[in-house]
Write a protein that binds this DNA or RNA. Structure first.
Lengths: 183, 183
DNA sequence: GGTGCCATGTAACGAGTTACATGATTGG
DNA sequence: CCAATCATGTAACTCGTTACATGGCACC
């Protein structure tokens, strides 16, 4: 039940609608917990049934009504308890690595191009993270305690993407050498 | 359908039983694609029905009979086609990051201990990977082409774990500072 | 007049997790 | 005698993905 906790993590600081949440999951929490709109709506329904959150219908003119979700006192307790419990590192499931693992079965250039595509994607994410860092976390000494925690997660993202790019470079270089050897 | 491809990736070099596969997934392919025994049996049944693999029953005395699975010519083609198709980087879903994100909601020491636990786990994996590197890939210049591809995936694992440890250190250090400030 | 945004969902399916079930053999 | 290893699976459930459905308003 971890999507549930990711949703609470977001709602706990700022109550909002399912629609808003699904947009938030494009950034912020979404950087380390992915979820589609459909999943979010389904999970919100369940969380409301279990009384972790409560909904208030906000009538709107010239827009569909929205449901504003708030974390209940019970939900808050459950969330804090969940943080307190130990958990195991998520295990890896990476298509690209399976492909590289048996990459000798396809022409070199195919894997090289794929690695370059992935490199570009990671570089892209990296630049997004760097922008966020500059905008919100540039003076890390003066950050509020709360923001220091959030910053730590951003640091993780920065590291992850930096490392992914570096590995792609390694792998691309290896392929380049193998291509040279073939000539 | 990516577990399917991970299974084929393993079977394509060495046919074996479901039981053997589930053990292999504790290492090798398993380092970058996790799967339980139950999942593996289910998927093998499906793959056989789709004719990606074929089974040969090997009668054994003093042990239960086993089914030896081989990748068919059709399966091989499908696998190679899959490698050729582009894919997107897997998106992150990490409990620990959700916990750190709202980590200010619990006493400092709880998160610190959790980070230390995770650090130890990553260090452990790292040492496993290093052993494998020393044993099988120490003279990287003289590796067969095939093994160079496999080595690239090991490099990824080494990097990933190294980076995870480094980030844990960063995060632990931050918490230490916050604890000092509290005094 | 079409695209995109706001805002809600349902339905079907595929993938992953947890628990249970069976049964012989080997080794301490 | 107990635990581990070999070897197979079923069943129930949760989580994640893909596709579909509705409908008004704002902006170009």
């Amino acid at each position: 039940m971890a999507l549930a906790h990711a949703l609470i993590a977001s709602l706990i600081e700022e109550p909002c609608s399912g629609y808003d949440l699904s947009k938030r999951f494009g950034g912020s929490v979404g950087f380390f917990w992915n979820a589609s709109q459909q999943q979010i709506y389904r999970e919100l329904t369940k969380l409301e049934a279990q009384n972790w959150i409560s909904a208030e219908v906000i009538p709107q003119q010239s827009r569909p009504d929205k449901k504003l979700f708030r974390v209940t006192e019970f939900g808050r307790k459950q969330f804090i308890e969940w943080i307190t419990e130990p958990c195991e590192p998520t295990d890896l499931r990476d298509d690209l690595l399976v492909k590289v693992f048996r990459g000798y079965l396809v022409p070199r250039h195919i894997l090289r191009e794929e690695l370059q595509r992935h490199r570009a994607t990671h570089l892209n994410k990296l630049s997004v993270y760097r922008d966020i860092e500059q905008q919100y976390f540039s003076e890390s000494q003066q950050l509020a305690v709360k923001d220091q925690f959030v910053y730590m997660t951003l640091r993780r993202g920065l590291r992850l993407e930096t490392d992914a790019v570096a590995w792609c470079d390694e792998a691309i270089e290896l392929l380049r050498q193998l291509e040279v050897d073939q000539e």
